[in-house]
């Protein structure tokens, strides 16, 4: 079963994302901020990180993404950014940080699940 780590500081959003991911057979873990996201990513070795961009604390989503990309041990981890900001330069910043995909909030549950499924095919 594929492992997905959901990172968002908003507990209800995490819960909605978790419920959406559970349409399919995924093992879902949650982290509430950048630091614990990075720690859990190293412990759990998830297949995919669903990562909120704007989070309080020292590490926002972009920094977490860049740290994951810089870690050779985590090179297999796919990163999908979820952000309230949908400007072209925001997407670009996400891609610069090494994300595989960039989704804009509010997220469409079906789009999320389809994008994730499509990703396993190309992975």
């Amino acid at each position: 079963m594929k492992k997905i780590l959901v990172v968002d500081d908003h507990a209800d959003i995490r819960r909605l994302i978790r419920m959406t991911l559970e349409f399919e057979d995924y093992e879902v873990h949650e982290a509430a901020d950048g630091e614990s996201a990075l720690r859990m990513a190293r412990e759990l070795r998830p297949d995919l990180l669903l990562l909120d961009v704007m989070m309080p604390g020292a590490l926002d989503g972009l920094k977490v993404c860049a740290a994951i990309r810089a870690d050779a041990e985590l090179s297999h981890v796919h990163v999908m950014l979820l952000s309230a900001r949908g400007q072209a330069r925001d997407r670009e910043a996400g891609m610069q940080a090494g994300a595989h995909a960039y989704l804009v909030k509010p997220f469409s549950p079906l789009q999320l699940i389809d994008r994730i499924a499509a990703q396993w095919v190309t992975a």
Partner: peptide
């Protein structure tokens, strides 16, 4: 405090469960 109010949250969960 990054919470929806309980009624809204429960309602959304119902909708997501139906969608699922």
């Amino acid at each position: 405090g990054n919470r929806f109010d309980d009624a809204a949250s429960e309602q959304m969960e119902c909708i997501i469960a139906d969608l699922g």
